[in-house]
Each structure stands twice: as C-alpha cells, then as structure tokens.
Amino acid sequence: MNSIWQRNIIRGAIILVIQLLLLKRIDITFGDFNYIHFTIYPIIFALLPYKTNRTALIPIGFAIGLIVDLFYDSLGVHAAASTFICYFRFYILNLLSPAEGYGKEHLTAFRHGLPWFLSYLSALLFIHLLLLYSLEAFSFVYFNEIILRTIFSFIASLFVLMLGTLIFNPKY
C-alpha cells in the first residue's frame, strides 16, 4: 500500500516538473494558429489507485491544480478543471467498467490493456481540457476558439501521454 502511494507521489512530482518546466515553455504557433498546448498532468489523477477515497481525491485534484495554476499565472483555472475531473473520474470508471471489474488498485494500461486505457484517458483528458479552456476564456463568446484549442491540445497531449505509456508502461 505504502509503496503504491510512494510511486504515485514520485510519479506525480516528475510529471508536474515535466509539465511546468518543460511543456509549459513549448509554444507551437503558425501564424494565427496557436491552439496547441501540451497538458499532461491529468494523467496523475488517472493513475491514482482505484480504491482511493472519492472524497479525498477532490482535495488532491484541487491542490495539484493550484500548483499548476501558480506556474501558469492563472489562479483557479487549472484547479477548477482538476477538481472537476477528480470528481468525475468515478463516473467514467463506472461507464468503462471492464467485465472482470477493476480488481484492487491499478488503473494502468499494463493491467487493463491499451484500448481501455486509451478510452479512459481520452475521456478524462478531453473533459479536463474543455473545462480548462472554457474557464480560461470564461465566456461562450469565444466558443470557436475554445473548441479548436480543446481539440488540438487534446490530440497533442494524448499523443505525448500515449508515447509515455508505451515507453514506461507502468505496472502500478
């Protein structure tokens, strides 16, 4: 049990460092096209053990979101989106529940197969990004921009995440 938490904390810290010190600086712009932003830290929430207390999950999401916010100078935006997916993770898991159940803890591609993990992560990531950019724009006046940003960032981020998953393929 303890080792799982240690793993998660270390993994989360590494992902946050990559996100905040590396991916934040990547700016892909072609003229007016600046819709690609890499956002990989939601995988921290995705990989938390299945048995994590639902109520406890929410402050975790809020705290991590807040840390990201501090670096992105957008206090509250990432926190709100993270809080939401931490709450919503339960429903996605219910929806994608495999025939044999989730077993004890691990929500990894190694355990449940790549297709399942892909759909699980996609759902989580897409909701997170949609919410994130909606809150960033904070008005549906910018609807087109929100959608474009969400879709392109989603594809880019998912690509990075799947690459990472295929390379490391964590057991836990």
Binding site: T55, I58, P59, G61, F62, G65, D69, S74, L75, G76, V77, A79, A80, T83, F84, C86, Y87, L135, F138
Partner: peptide
C-alpha cells in the same frame, strides 16, 4: 467536497 472546492476555484478565478 467537490462543490466546495469548485466554488473556491471559481472564486480564485
């Protein structure tokens, strides 16, 4: 808890 934290986040935003 979710609602509380969302409200805090929105307040911050």
């Amino acid at each position: 808890v979710f609602v509380i934290f969302e409200i805090i986040a929105l307040y911050l935003i």
